[in-house]
């Protein structure tokens, strides 16, 4: 080994050791724990149970329900965010007077904690004092001030958590797509104008295809983040009523803290990791194919 590369290793070692202990070891522990019966109170490691935690989880109605809810949450939230984000990005890209100020306004929620977004919507969607129900009533959309029990009606609870997510992360989508739009070469637009394309054709055949790779990355990042959602759901509904807004993160949290089932929650966590890795590999594959073209 050369002196140069040895020096490099010294530089890398502190971070490497830290990650080894507090990142890779926990993941390894997680995988091992998923095969054992573990009692939280006695702190003891019990019998090896093989894949039975995995089988139990897949067979349990609550796990399937939480997975379904997570998928609905991701698809609806990311779908709306993509459409709204693209809409705002296109508006901001027209460079009207004062677009800088609007951009700043739109980007202000970018760094707000998911928890705070949850609190804001918990307050606005409140059954008794919420302003959303009041506005719906004032505009004659609903017939009473308590018409929709946003957070305690099983039909709306999951939807309400999704609203808080869309509000919080549309600015991120807008920001990334705007950067993508500004990266499209003006010559592409010029040549489409020479070819006599109208605005809609230009959008469909120039803007969208050029934006596609950026869109894939933005959707991938948002999909992973939306799937991991915990704070928003916890603050708004804690997964209730009767598990109607239970997502994977909240279910695993309860399995660990309320029931003390380390083995069970570890098995679910491993499956969750595998699921997200599979989804992101698929996205990266699509992107790789698109880049090749």
């Amino acid at each position: 080994m050369t002196k140069e590369s040895r020096v490099s290793i010294y530089f890398f070692a502190p971070a490497g050791i830290f990650m080894l202990i507090f990142l890779f070891f926990p993941v390894a522990l997680l995988i091992r724990d998923s095969f054992f019966e573990i009692d939280m109170i006695g702190q003891g490691r019990g019998a090896f149970v093989g894949l039975s935690h995995y089988v139990d989880a897949i067979r349990s109605e609550r796990f399937i329900g939480a997975t379904t809810n997570t998928i609905i949450y991701v698809v609806v939230a990311v779908g709306f965010e993509l459409i709204l984000g693209l809409f705002f990005a296109l508006l901001l890209n027209t460079a009207f007077k004062g677009h800088g100020i609007v951009r700043t306004i739109m980007l202000a929620p970018l760094m707000i904690a998911p928890l705070v977004s949850g609190l804001i919507w918990r307050f606005m969607l409140n059954n008794q004092f919420g302003i959303v129900n009041k506005l719906l009533y004032d505009f004659n959309i609903t017939s009473s001030r308590h018409a929709i029990q946003w957070l305690s009606d099983e039909r709306f609870s999951l939807f309400s958590t999704i609203i808080a997510d869309i509000w919080l992360t549309t600015p991120f989508m807008m920001l990334v797509l705007l950067a993508g739009l500004q990266g499209i070469s003006p010559t592409l637009y010029e040549s489409s104008q020479i070819d006599g394309a109208n605005k809609i054709q230009t959008f469909l055949y120039v803007t969208l295809p050029s934006l596609f790779p950026v869109m894939i990355v933005a959707v991938l990042i948002r999909t992973v983040d939306a799937a991991r959602t915990f704070d928003i759901v916890w603050v708004l509904t804690q997964g209730g009523p009767s598990n109607s807004s239970e997502v994977l993160s909240t279910y695993m949290y309860k399995t660990l803290t309320r029931y003390g089932q380390v083995g069970e929650s570890s098995a679910m966590a491993v499956m969750f990791i595998l699921l997200l890795l599979a989804i992101s590999s698929y996205f990266l594959f699509v992107m790789f194919k698109a880049n090749k073209k």
């Binding site: 992973v224 993160s249 570890s266 890795l277």
Partner: peptide, 22 residues
């Protein structure tokens, strides 16, 4: 980094809880 970003926080939280406890 991408892999770490893919790992759900809750999946790290479970073993971290055990380690911090010990």
């Amino acid at each position: 980094t991408l892999c770490v970003r893919m790992i759900p926080m809750i999946s790290i939280a479970i073993p971290m809880y055990i380690i911090i406890n010990v």
